[in-house]
Amino acid sequence: MAIKQLSVFAENKPGALVEITDVISESGIDMRALSVADTGDFGILRIIVSDTEKAEKILTEKGFVTKVTPVLAVKISDEPGALTKAIKLLYKESINVEYLYAFIASSKKNAYVVLRVADNEVAERILTENGFGTVTEDDIQNL
């Protein structure tokens, strides 16, 4: 099942990221995963948080531009080649990975990879049929 990712627009200037993370931490929301993509001009901060709706509401109120996108979070076992195997499975089915980033849940001692693909359902089916576990919104709350 897909989980919600919150993307926030950040101008390429000093302090832009801190402004966003400050707002999130001040409202008592936990960040589970984070990645930044940037060009010379601007950046996009992508985060997985404990309460997406609340984070989106607060950031929008503060004047940030945000977008919620469903992404796939896949559990990756701690063995060599596990991530490669997952990506190869998608590649064979011509599923293009737009971007991905990894995070670790210390409580579970597990690694996870967030995948952005065009069709989450198809990608999830391929991965679960091949023994990969995916993360649900409930799991995110408890990580």
Partner: peptide, 18 residues
């Protein structure tokens, strides 16, 4: 100034808007 309806989670889409 960017508005939410023109924002996307991918760099590619935002650059396409520009």
């Amino acid at each position: 100034e960017l508005s939410p309806e023109h924002f996307s989670d991918t760099i590619k889409d935002v650059e396409r808007q520009e």
